[in-house]
Design a protein around this nucleic acid. Structure first.
Length: 480
DNA sequence: ATGTCC
């Protein structure tokens, strides 16, 4: 789709009219600045239009400011599909089910870490296995894994990885209730057993940061954030387990779409009507993978604490601020405008973060008045952000904002353009120590391969779908 | 994202 097909509705709102494609039942709607409109590829606009063709889609096929090309659905895409008349689609969640981010705040100051970045990250790197196919010191039996995928972060805490209070600062309390381990294949279990507590590869990371700016004093106080204090950000998902679950169900959904006579503009939007066995089975298996990811981030948190305690002092505190999922489908109730009554939807967020506004019952008590914290990582050489959810987002984006800066270059292109060693050296000159399993990962993840995180987060802020609370600067990064 | 092609 050409940029000329876009209609500008507001400073930060652009629409793809539903007349653009015969199958669209709602318009596409993007939150972008004038500059970002040119950065989004034509194929991404096409994907947003395609999603608007799914049965039961409500209001708009939405795209967050970072929108870029994904499998079927765009990354940065949000679609709410009617609980009774809509569909569920694995492509709207993504391969890395419950890829997400958590933020730990510490009582260390920037100066306490300065000069020790290299040694500290070596310690973290040794504690937390990373890289493609990395294996954990945990190797669970089938029955242990069944319990884990039905209980998520709660499994981890019950088994000694973390503290009870961690649970309440996870989205969904780190556990999606509908998980049913009887729907998990032997193959998925086989891949999952040895990867609990591993980081993975690609854009996944463990980063030591410091807070360099507070934008909203009151919200920062509620979240417990102060300038110059050190934070740890963990970004990872459900590893080979979630990937296997997604692969298996994409195959089933392709058959299901045909069986139920759903006409799709793109095979990658394979889906099944909610309420059918195919849709239910996927959703329950997806919940298992989501729980796997929460257990994974929880175990990594525990090992991160151990590394800090060994390296500094056993008195160092690392408290969980919040843990968000940015690749998941959730059954949620929304009231879109005053005229309509509350209704249930399967909200698909793929590379988009839930950012519920103040007063929502799903937000931890401590954050009720402020709104939900959402975490938006940038890239290993640039700022990450903590933002808060808004009432505006509740009414316009089903309570969602962006999940990162978004790539502007494919992995392949980035590998051709950058060399890992050079990128690493440039970052170290900026005072950022990066350690990875392979130089190629550093090349793929070079800061230049990403959009400017400040630009993307500012669009979300100015459009009103989330509000900036604090900015985080990288000091030391462990990558896959 | 991913035992980067069963």
């Amino acid at each position: 789709m050409k940029k000329d097909n876009l209609e500008r509705k507001d400073e930060y709102i652009w629409e793809i009219p539903k007349e653009y494609k015969g199958c669209m039942s709602v318009p596409g709607r993007l939150y972008l600045s004038e500059k970002l409109v040119d950065v989004v590829e034509e194929d991404t606009y096409e994907q947003i239009a395609n999603v608007a063709c799914l049965p039961g889609i409500k209001n708009y096929s939405l795209a967050m400011p970072e929108a870029h090309l994904g499998y079927g659905f765009p990354i940065g895409g949000v679609a709410a599909l009617d609980r009774d008349e809509g569909v569920i689609s694995p492509g709207g969640v993504g391969f890395d089910i419950n890829c997400g981010v958590r933020l730990l705040k510490t009582n260390l100051k920037k100066e306490d870490v300065k000069g020790k970045e290299k040694e500290l990250i070596e310690n973290l790197f040794n504690k937390v296995p990373s890289g493609v196919g990395s294996e954990s010191k945990l190797n669970l039996s089938n029955s242990e894994l069944d319990i884990l995928v039905e209980n998520g972060a709660q499994w981890a805490v019950e088994n000694g990885y973390g503290k009870e209070s961690d649970i309440k600062f996870c989205e969904e309390n780190g556990k999606m209730q509908q998980a049913d381990s009887s729907l998990i294949s032997k193959k998925a279990k086989g891949r999952g057993k040895s990867q609990v507590g591993t980081l993975g590869s690609g854009n996944h990371f463990l980063e030591v940061q410091y807070i360099d700016e507070i934008f909203d004093e009151e919200a920062a106080k509620t979240f417990g954030l102060n300038e110059d204090y050190v934070t740890v950000m963990i970004h990872t998902g459900s590893r080979g387990f979630g990937h296997q679950v997604c692969t298996e169900h994409v195959n089933e959904m392709e058959k299901a779409a045909k069986k139920y006579g759903i006409d799709l503009p793109d095979k990658q939007l394979a889906c099944a009507p909610s309420g059918t066995k195919e849709a239910e089975d996927y959703f329950k298996a997806m919940c298992c993978a989501a729980n796997y990811a929460w257990a994974n981030r929880q175990v990594i948190t525990s090992w991160t604490r151990e590394a800090f305690h060994d390296f500094f002092d056993s008195e160092i505190k690392l408290d969980l601020v919040y843990d968000v999922a940015h690749n998941v489908a959730k059954e949620e109730t929304h009231k879109i405008n005053k005229k309509e009554s509350k209704k249930d939807y399967f909200v698909h967020r793929k590379g988009a973060t839930r950012a519920f506004g103040p007063g929502h019952s799903s937000i931890p008590k401590k954050y009720q008045k402020t709104g939900q914290p959402a975490l938006i990582p940038g890239n290993m050489g640039d700022s990450s952000f903590i933002v808060k959810g808004t009432e505006y987002a509740m009414e316009n984006t089903f309570g969602s904002t962006c999940h990162g800066a978004g790539r502007k270059m494919s992995r392949k292109k980035a590998k051709g353009k950058y060399w890992g060693g050079t990128v690493q050296k440039e970052l170290s000159e900026k005072g950022i120590y990066v350690k990875a399993t392979h130089g190629s990962v550093i090349a793929e993840e070079a800061p230049g391969a990403y959009k400017n995180p400040t630009e993307v987060v500012d669009v979300a802020h100015n459009a009103g779908i989330s509000e900036k609370v604090g900015r985080l600067q990288p000091m030391a990064v462990a990558k896959g």
